[in-house]
Amino acid sequence: MSDVVAVEGLRHQYGERVALDGISFSVAPGEIFGLLGPNGGGKTTLFRILTTLLPPTGGRATICGHDVVRERSQVRSKLGVVFQSPSLDIHLRARENLRHGGNLYGLKGRDLENRIENSLGRLRVADRADDLVKTLSGGLRRRVEIAKCMLHRPALLILDEPSTGLDPGARFDLWRNLQELVEAEGTTILITTHFMDEAERCGRVGILDRGKLVACGSPSELKSRLGGDCITIVTEDAVSLRDLIEAKLNCITMVVGQTLRIETPDAGRMMSLVLESFQDRIRSMTIGKPTLEDVFMHHTGHRFDGGLEG
């Protein structure tokens, strides 16, 4: 089967500012693909382009083979879109919102009513169908919204930071619901997030930073590509210590904020070597298997929270 999402050399500029700098990736049917990146990394711009709300200034993107610029209507009918800010009308009941949403996708009558029942049931909000949305919690609203977006059985469910403002319990439910949709309906999901733990749950992850896709693959693949372990050293003057360690031990060392990171295949040996020579300069030293955060730092040279080095 061909790709649900195909992006090739996609670029976007707001005046002089480059928001997307030639990114390419694809999403296969039935996949949960996560776009991970800090705020301002280009996630929202990419989201707007894929949902046909913003034409890119360069490159190409297709959904189910339809071009997002030239074949907007076909693309729109294939998409279920969950925006960061909820698209429900809080003055309407949950069911009324779904009816309205279904009408916008050309659904009506008995067929629509059946789909509404199924969709609300699947997202476990059937018992709240006749409540006004303004009386529902954030987590319930998200579920109602996803139920609305699934009415026309989209080929791709695309969500922009859907866990924003949700408590941990609601986030857990959200992910369980998304995984059920993939298993039961074979839906393909593209989700943007700035949470590492959410990215871990995706089948594949694309890391987006400053308009570039710096890495792409399954979370385990990305982490194992780093190889071995990560040593993190907290010290007074990270830059001078880096120079000393690199000169003496011949290893890849990186300054990240106030800390120094060393990627090494043999952490035990490296730690004792570092301690032997520089013990007096080290405040603390920790060792760990690489996380997605390490993957991010490895590829971008800066911390995930956006704090640039230096």
């Binding site: 046909t52 709300l53 698209s87 916008l104």
Partner: peptide, 9 residues
Amino acid sequence: FMQGVLAAP
């Protein structure tokens, strides 16, 4: 809400 409408066909 309007984004949802605009993203519909």
